[in-house]
Design a protein around this nucleic acid. Structure first.
Length: 626
DNA sequence: GAGCACTGC
């Protein structure tokens, strides 16, 4: 009975040898396609090796021979770094040598770099300096089917660049369902030939099979009354009736749970659709909903609401079950409901505030943004709203041309237009150092306070130590000042004050980056002002409040007798978010950084008191009719 | 008195 335990004697390899990946047998045909066709759309499952192998195939085939490089864009920072590390390992070099990556705040490339991974947003920024992206012989846009704003815009730019650079090769990696859309986008218009209408053959689709196992899809007989209850009972059913394997539940909000016998049950938001892959998942429970952000161009308000998912998302969720062995996907909706779902989510570019992207396009020399060749054109109202805001901030002139230097500088700064305007006005208000800090702190976009369960009061009192009468922006300034002076950037300071150290450290990086930009514009940042006497402090506070008004006048609100706010035109009721220092405090007029509708309430966050007269002083055009 | 998906420069 020499039945020894293989599992104990062998450790499974972390990575499959590259030559065993299914992509290996496609090498020659892939290289031929890329050589002969300007645009190649690669369809393949996660695990097919497309992101790691294709760049190496190209490098070996001589695509870097004349000093040009191969660029591979990723929608997320982690993806750019981890794939680069993996490829460097296979290539046999240190990261940053022949294989490198570049993301915001981290550039691991050098003169020897031939294969470069970067985020798509960063590549768009490179185009500001090098409009034809002339350093690259090949650009591969990975995960294009996710349809992020930046990858959509990048594809539009690449289509334009290709006309002037026929040598450039474009590779798009996509999920199966969306491949045709990319091909249509890159194909020349149909031409009449003696044989009838023919499609231009500029773009070819190549399919790489991945390693997946069959997945059983199960639907409900009748709709669930409460999908949360149904999710829980489904998990219990799986646990009692199905063989071993972990369970992934895609829903809208996130929590963690563990059942006996160590079957892992993971409740997950849509982070599981794109960002993380968890090993061992055999069962997927799909709630049928996704929480999506949308922007209303009429009100300028963003919302975050649960909506039915798309067929593409449902397929993505189900796919998570078949990674390691045959799996099952339990859909908490009926098959009829599935049939009525939209094919794909509305692309982000059609449901977002476009002001930042209109500004970027203008800076890239695309004057007529309405006629830009978008993969999916955004509704005109979204474009117009973006243009109007940029005009009111002075970034565009009467002819909708980018102003210089203001508009161009705003485009170069890595913050939203209203904050960019605030930053570029700060020197004239004598508070540039302070606004730099506020810009860095507000763009963290997350809660800097740590709240342990059941310790709400502790967090509240920690916050109160830094509270400023004037509002959240000055409170954030106090927090940062204490962090870099008293706290000497230590994690202990954060621990004692219930602050998120990672976010605070990030604020330091963002501030340094913004400061470098300003210095390049010739603005001098005087940091000696940080220590000022109390008599000038109140004056300083007012200068900061005035400066914020100069950038955020479009986000002004007035308090009503009942304690809620209304926007200037009086059409929308706004609530101070309970996380704001202005929650339950009196103020007449305020400006705010962000407005978002969740559930049935519209909240404003990062709020600062202002005087009504300042609105007229700094935005006379904008407020002349009110 | 909220409890808000995710990401990026």
């Amino acid at each position: 009975m020499a039945d020894f335990d293989l599992g104990a004697a062998f450790i499974p390899a972390l990575h499959k040898p590259a030559e065993l990946l299914p992509i290996a047998k496609h090498r020659k045909s892939l290289l031929y396609l890329i050589e002969t066709s300007p645009v190649t759309i690669v369809v393949g499952q996660t695990g097919s090796g497309k992101s790691t192998q294709i760049p190496q195939f190209l490098e070996r085939a001589g695509w870097c021979a004349d000093g040009k490089i191969i660029g591979i864009t990723q929608p997320r920072r982690v993806a750019a770094t981890t794939v680069a590390i993996r490829v460097a390992e296979e290539f046999g070099c240190d990261v940053g040598k022949e294989v490198g990556y570049s993301i915001r705040f981290e550039d691991a490339t050098s003169e020897t770099t031939r294969i470069k991974f970067l985020t798509d947003g960063l590549l768009i920024r490179e185009a500001l300096v090098d409009p034809l992206l002339s350093r690259y012989s090949v650009i591969m846009v990975d995960e294009a089917h996710e349809r992020s704003i930046s990858s959509d815009i990048l594809l539009g730019l690449l289509k334009k660049i290709r006309k002037k650079r026929p040598d450039l090769r474009i590779i798009i990696s996509s999920a199966t369902l969306q491949a045709e859309e990319f091909r249509n986008f890159f194909s020349e218009p149909k031409e009449e030939t003696p044989n009838g209408k023919e499609n231009g053959d500029n773009a070819s689709i190549v399919s790489l099979e991945g390693r997946t196992y069959p997945i059983d899809i199960l639907y409900l007989d009748s709709p669930a009354e409460d999908y949360l209850d149904k999710a829980v009972s489904t998990v219990i059913d799986i646990h009692t009736n199905e063989p071993k394997g972990d369970i992934l539940i895609s829903k809208c909000t996130c929590s963690r749970k563990r059942s006996e016998n160590f079957r892992k049950v993971i409740f997950s938001t849509n982070i599981s659709e794109a960002s993380v892959t968890i090993d061992g998942i055999v069962y997927v429970v799909d709630s049928g909903f996704v929480k999506l952000r949308a922007y209303d161009p009429k009100t300028g308000i963003e919302s975050l609401t649960a909506t039915p998912l798309s067929k593409a998302s449902a397929a993505q969720r189900a796919g998570r079950a078949g990674r390691t062995k045959p799996g099952k996907c339990f859909r908490l909706y009926t098959e009829e409901a599935y049939q009525s779902l939209p094919e794909a989510n509305i692309p982000e570019i059609q449901r977002s505030n476009l002001a930042p992207f209109v500004l970027q396009l203008k800076a890239l020399g695309i004057d007529n943004v309405l006629r830009f060749d978008f993969l999916a054109p955004p509704p005109a109202e979204l474009m117009v709203r973006g243009l109007e805001l940029l005009y009111s901030l002075g970034a565009l002139d009467d002819y909708a041309k980018l102003t210089r230097p203001l508009g161009l500088r705003m485009a170069e700064l890595a913050v939203e237009p209203m904050m960019a305007k605030t930053l570029l006005s700060a020197q004239s208000f004598g508070c540039l150092s302070e606004i730099l800090t506020i810009a860095a702190m507000t763009s963290l976009g997350g809660n800097i306070w740590i709240q342990h369960e059941g310790e709400k009061k502790k967090t509240e009192s920690a916050k109160r130590k830094f509270a400023a009468e004037e509002g959240d922006q000055l409170t954030l300034l106090n927090v940062y000042q204490a962090f870099v002076t008293k706290g000497r950037k230590e994690s202990r300071f954060c621990h004692e004050n219930l602050l998120n150290f990672k976010l605070m450290a990030r604020a330091v990086s963002i501030r340094a980056q913004l400061k470098r930009y300003l210095e390049r514009f010739g603005l001098n940042v005087d940091e000696s002002l940080a220590a000022h006497s109390t008599s000038t402090a109140s004056n300083k506070a007012e200068q900061i409040q005035r400066c914020l008004t100069a950038g955020y006048f479009a986000h002004a609100a007035r308090m009503q007798p009942d304690g809620t706010f209304r926007n200037v035109s009086g059409t929308t009721v706004l609530h101070a978010h309970p996380s704001s220092i202005m929650f339950n405090r009196k103020a007449e007029w305020v400006i705010f950084h962000e407005v978002m509708e969740t559930g049935n309430k519209t909240f404003i966050r990062d709020i600062t008191r202002i005087e009504k007269s300042w609105l007229l002083e700094y935005a006379p055009e904008f407020y002349k009719t009110t």
